[in-house]
Each structure stands twice: as structure tokens, then as C-alpha cells.
């Protein structure tokens, strides 16, 4: 399978007020088409910065992001982002259906096709009845479903998710995880899913990339060899799940302590230990 997303030598340094903060330091990975990859790392490790660079919302200091071979310098047309702050990423003054339809309208999708895409996306996330409501009339989990519906109606090649379930309660979260798995299997879209929740990463992903503490690098990259059909009860009880979870947990703890990954020959040399 060819890589749809290539991140090469990505670095992001913030400068200002006489301070210099290296948030992301020399990151390399690729995501093949159709994969569901999870990025997990300790909180404050620059995950959001990384995702913004991948989404073309932020210019990296050096290095590059390529989507299907094309360098990403601004938000590309076949990528959609679902943010953590669902309440703030929806237009409070538009109805649920208009929220989903707006990007399609801007893209120039004809009216009939647009209506069909909106209808199908809302049905996919189980919100057909809420089309005329305003986002703030819905619960948090439902608002995040609207954001997901908007992303899939856009028919992206790559779907980026930035801790999308961090602000919803545990039960809603389990439902949304299954929703994402289901949509991914059905639509064949490539998903890059950022989270700080180790269980979530292992449960959702075909592959888990463990990130180090800031400046972020790839600490570990492991394939999740769980069966494709997963459910909250049996998968989470699976021995293999527990093993993978333990391994990721250990790597994240190591990252928190500041242990660096073995230097990658293709990456620039690591800075001197502090």
C-alpha cells in the first residue's frame, strides 16, 4: 500500500518574548492509504501542534508534510479535521444541517448532491432527527457527532481527529469510538487519530505511534494485531489487548521521564540532554 500521508523531519519551534520553545523536534512517519493510525503521547507533548502542521493550519519551522505526494502548505481540499472543542468548532448560529452543508456549499457541490450528502452523513452518525436543531440544543456527544458528520460529508481522503472525545463522558465516548471504527471500515478513509488515552488508542487503531515528551519525536511504532471486529466488551477483555496496552503504557511513562528514542539515522541529531 502506498503512503497517503508522509511526514518528514517535521520541526516546530515557537519563538517570542525572548523564549524559544521547541514543540516538535524532527518527526518522521508515514500513513498508508486506508489505515487508522493513533498518535498517543503524554499531555503537553505537542500533539496539537503536530496535528495543526499536518492539517496545514500551521507552518512547520522545517521539514515537510505530503498528502498523496503533494506538499501541504495550506489546508488541502481532501482533508477534514475534527477538533476536541466540539462546542467551539460548530457554528452556533447555523442549524445542524447547515453546519454540515456549509463546507460543501463552499466547495461548489450542487444543491441536490449536497442535500443527499448531508442526509446520509447525519443518518450515519444517527442524527437524522436533529437536522433542524441548533448545535447548542444538543448534548456534548451529539455535538461531536455533528462535527463528525460534517467531516465525512466532505468526503475527505484523510480524516484528522484531535482528541475528539476528550471532553465527553465515558459512556458517550465508548459509543463514539465504535462509531468511528464503523465509519472507517465502511468508508475506507485514512484516519489519523490523536489522543492521550492509551486504551482508546489501542482499541481504535490498526497501529499506535507513541510520541515522546516535547520536543516530540516518535518513541515507538507498533502494529495492533487485534481482530478487525472489535467491541467494547470482548476486545477490552482480550489478553492481547492488555499486553498491547501495557506496552504502550510503559512507553508513555518512559517518554514522560524524558527517555529519548534511539536516534534515527534519517533524523537530525538529537539535542544534548538537559
Amino acid at each position: 500500500m502506498s503512503a497517503v500521508l508522509e511526514v518528514t523531519g517535521l520541526r516546530k519551534v515557537y519563538e517570542g518574548g525572548g523564549r524559544r520553545v521547541e514543540a516538535v523536534g524532527g518527526l518522521d512517519f508515514t500513513v498508508p492509504a486506508g489505515q487508522l493510525a493513533c498518535l498517543v503521547g503524554p499531555s503537553g507533548c505537542g500533539k496539537t501542534t503536530l496535528l495543526k502542521c499536518v492539517a496545514g493550519l500551521m507552518r512547520p519551522t522545517s521539514g515537510s508534510v505530503r498528502l498523496a505526494g503533494e506538499p501541504v502548505t495550506e489546508p488541502p481540499p481532501d482533508m477534514a479535521v475534527v477538533f476536541q472543542e466540539y462546542g467551539r468548532s460548530l457554528f452556533a448560529w447555523l442549524s445542524v444541517a447547515d453546519n454540515v452543508a456549509l463546507p460543501l456549499k463552499e466547495k461548489g457541490v450542487p444543491r441536490a448532491r449536497r442535500a443527499e450528502l448531508v442526509r446520509r452523513a447525519l443518518a450515519d452518525v444517527g442524527l437524522s432527527d436533529a437536522a433542524g436543531a441548533h448545535p447548542w440544543q444538543l448534548s456534548g456527544g451529539m455535538q461531536q457527532r455533528v462535527a463528525i458528520a460534517r467531516a465525512i460529508a466532505y468526503e475527505p481522503r484523510v480524516l484528522l481527529m484531535d482528541e475528539p472525545f476528550a471532553a465527553v463522558d465515558a459512556q458517550t465516548r465508548a459509543e463514539l469510538e465504535d462509531l468511528i471504527r464503523g465509519l472507517w471500515q465502511r468508508l475506507g478513509v485514512t484516519v489519523l487519530f490523536v489522543t492521550h488515552d492509551i486504551d482508546e488508542a489501542v482499541y481504535l487503531g490498526q497501529r499506535v505511534l507513541v510520541l515522546s515528551a516535547s520536543p516530540t519525536r516518535v518513541q515507538d511504532d507498533l502494529a495492533v494485531d487485534l481482530p478487525d471486529r472489535r467491541d467494547q466488551l470482548t476486545t477490552r477483555g482480550d489478553v492481547r489487548f492488555t499486553e498491547l496496552r501495557a506496552r504502550v503504557y510503559a512507553r508513555v511513562q518512559a517518554a514522560k521521564r524524558g527517555e529519548r528514542p534511539a536516534p534515527d539515522p534519517s533524523a537530525p541529531p538529537a539535542p544534548a540532554p538537559r
Binding site: 505537542g46 496539537t48 495543526k52 462546542g87 467551539r88 456527544g141 465527553v168
Partner: peptide
């Protein structure tokens, strides 16, 4: 869950950005 908790600033790059 529609409470103010949703307005927490994004983790990660937010604080250096604000410094800038």
C-alpha cells in the same frame, strides 16, 4: 456536558503560541 468545561484551551502548543 455542554458546560464550560468544553472551553478549556487546547493542550500542547497553546502556551508557547500565546507567549508569542
Amino acid at each position: 456536558m455542554t458546560g464550560r468545561g468544553t472551553r478549556t484551551p487546547a493542550e500542547g502548543g497553546a502556551s508557547p503560541a500565546r507567549t508569542a
